[in-house]
Design a protein around this nucleic acid. Structure first.
Length: 335
DNA sequence: AATCCGGGGAG
DNA sequence: CTCCCAGGATT
């Protein structure tokens, strides 16, 4: 793994936050860009929020980025810029849960705390043939205690990296390499032919469908954007004026102008173009979005939640993937 | 205890 | 299409 042997707690923390629920191949470029822009925690703490969000753009789970900034500033302001070196304090930091706290404690400070991530759940459930669900409270407790029991206390950092590496490369979710597995002769799941049945999960996720109608308002060289709030997808990212509809709406010129009149009192707008339906799959939602370009001769008084910005400045702000996708294909925004 | 948060890759 | 990813916060 690329960060093997890293001892800088800042770099370990940053990489672990980026890699939460994220593949190494997907996150590593982000990590390198963060280190290049913010080589130490003081630099990150002093950064402008929007610049950091822009650097995080496209990585997903955007509250990780907000918590990252919050914790960087906490460490600078309350811990004199020194990363805490005890487990409980590390765990108390925003965005750091049991996994990340154990990773930092063991990698950076050689403390004997076992990591429990998706790999560890899988390896332990198979090796010990445990069919208890890993996504329930009892199961999580059981695997956490088991992981702590089998941890090599003398070299916890190496051990933690090894068991995760093993889970990622040998004891894989699909088609694990049992034929070449060095643990095969003691693996209880293999002995019972249950490798492919483990680990067990009990919950299934439901995918909500949503329809987003984005109005791209132009006024001279300016466009209207709005920063999304907490409590929904894409927190802190920017977007255009959004009208969410309960079902798919078939737009025509008349219905668009009627909606603009009803919601914003717009009478003089010129409808330029209505895009095709773009689709984005999220883990818990499916977003179908349509983009409606409207040229305005004056700024609507009712349009107050967001801000008007120069078109040339929007490449400094962070947007969701589906908006970036549209912008890349929309002539007025090509830069 | 349940639910939510993104985006990408693999099968 | 489904599942998973070097998980965590919120309610």
């Amino acid at each position: 793994m690329p960060w093997k042997g890293e001892k800088d707690a800042y770099k370990i923390w940053l990489s672990e936050i980026i890699l939460q629920q994220t593949r190494v191949e997907q996150g590593w470029n982000y990590y390198e860009r963060f280190i290049k822009n913010y080589p130490n925690i003081g630099a990150l703490a002093a950064a402008k929020d929007q610049d950091v969000f822009k650097l995080w753009e496209g990585l997903g789970y955007y509250n990780r980025c907000k918590n990252l900034l919050h914790t960087a500033r906490t460490i600078v302001n309350e811990y004199n810029g020194q990363f805490p070196n005890d487990y409980e304090t590390i765990l108390s930091l925003k965005g750091i849960g049991p996994y990340t706290a154990a990773a930092i404690a063991s990698f950076a400070f050689q403390l004997p705390y076992a990591v429990v991530d998706g790999n560890v759940f899988r390896v332990l459930s198979r090796y010990f043939n445990i069919a208890e669900a890993i996504d329930g409270t009892a199961g999580k407790m059981r695997f956490t205690h088991l992981a702590q029991e089998v941890l090599d206390q003398s070299q916890p950092g190496i051990y933690n990296q090894a068991i995760m590496d093993f889970g990622a490369t040998v004891c894989k979710p699909f088609a694990p390499s049992c034929g070449i597995c060095p643990l095969q002769k003691n693996c209880q799941a293999f002995a019972n032919g249950l490798v492919n049945e483990l680990p067990v999960k009990e919950k299934k996720l439901l995918k909500r469908k949503r329809w987003f109608n984005y109005f791209f308002f132009e006024h001279g060289a300016q466009i209207y954007i709005h920063q999304r709030a907490q409590g929904d997808i894409w927190a802190n990212l920017h977007e255009f004026y959004l009208v969410e509809s309960p079902d798919q709406v078939v737009w025509n010129n008349a219905s668009v102008m009627e909606l603009l009149q009803d919601q914003l009192g717009i009478q003089t707008g010129v409808l330029k173009e209505v895009s095709d339906l773009l689709v984005q799959q999220l883990t818990h939602q499916q977003i179908k979005a349509r983009f409606i370009q409207v040229v305005l001769t004056k700024k609507p008084a009712l349009l107050t939640k967001g801000q008007w910005v120069d078109k040339k400045l929007i490449n400094q702000l962070a947007f969701p993937k589906i908006i970036l996708q549209w912008m890349e294909n929309a002539a007025p925004l090509k830069i």
